[in-house]
Amino acid sequence: MKAEFDPVQMAIPFFVLAIILEIALARLGKAKANYETRDTATSLAMGLGSTVAGLFTGGLIFAAALWAYEHRLFTIPMTAIWAWVVLFFAEDLTYYWFHRLAHERRFWWASHVNHHTSTHYNLSTALRQTWTGGVAGTWLLWLPLSFLGFPPAMVAIQKGISLVYQFWIHTEAVKRMPRWFEAVFNTPSHHRVHHARNARYLDANYAGILIIWDRMFGTFIPEVDEEPCRYGTVKNLGNFNLLHNVFHEWVGIGRDVLGAKSPREVLGYMFGPPGWSPDG
Rank of each mutant, 00 (worst) to 15 (best):
A26Q: 12
F5N: 10
S118Y: 02
G259T: 08
G208C: 08
V85G: 06
T57E: 05
T37V: 15
G149K: 00
V184N: 11
L210W: 12
K159Q: 11
H190W: 13
A183R: 05
V234G: 04
A156R: 02
H195I: 13
E249K: 02
R192G: 13
P144C: 08
T79Q: 14
A136G: 01
A126W: 04
L66R: 14
Q9A: 09
M1C: 06
A26E: 12
T37W: 09
L48S: 14
V85Y: 01
M78T: 10
N239V: 00
Y121G: 06
P178M: 04
R264V: 06
L87C: 08
L87I: 07
W213P: 11
F98W: 00
A204Y: 12
W250M: 03
R200V: 15
Y201E: 14
M46C: 06
I253F: 11
E91L: 12
F88A: 12
A65W: 01
T57R: 05
W276C: 02
A63W: 14
W139G: 02
G49H: 04
K32E: 15
Y69I: 13
G160A: 06
D203Q: 15
A183T: 02
T119K: 09
L55G: 09
Y201N: 15
I211V: 13
W97T: 05
S189K: 05
L148H: 00
V155E: 01
W142V: 03
G149V: 04
N122A: 05
P77S: 14
W84K: 07
I12V: 10
R264Y: 01
L258V: 06
Y231N: 05
V8F: 02
T233Q: 05
D39N: 15
M177H: 01
M46V: 00
V184D: 03
G134L: 09
I81P: 10
I161A: 12
G238M: 03
L123A: 09
W168C: 03
P188G: 09
A196S: 15
L163Q: 11
W213C: 12
F240G: 05
F62Q: 07
H194F: 12
W142E: 01
Q158M: 12
L141W: 13
T117C: 03
T42H: 02
L73W: 13
N205D: 15
G272Q: 03
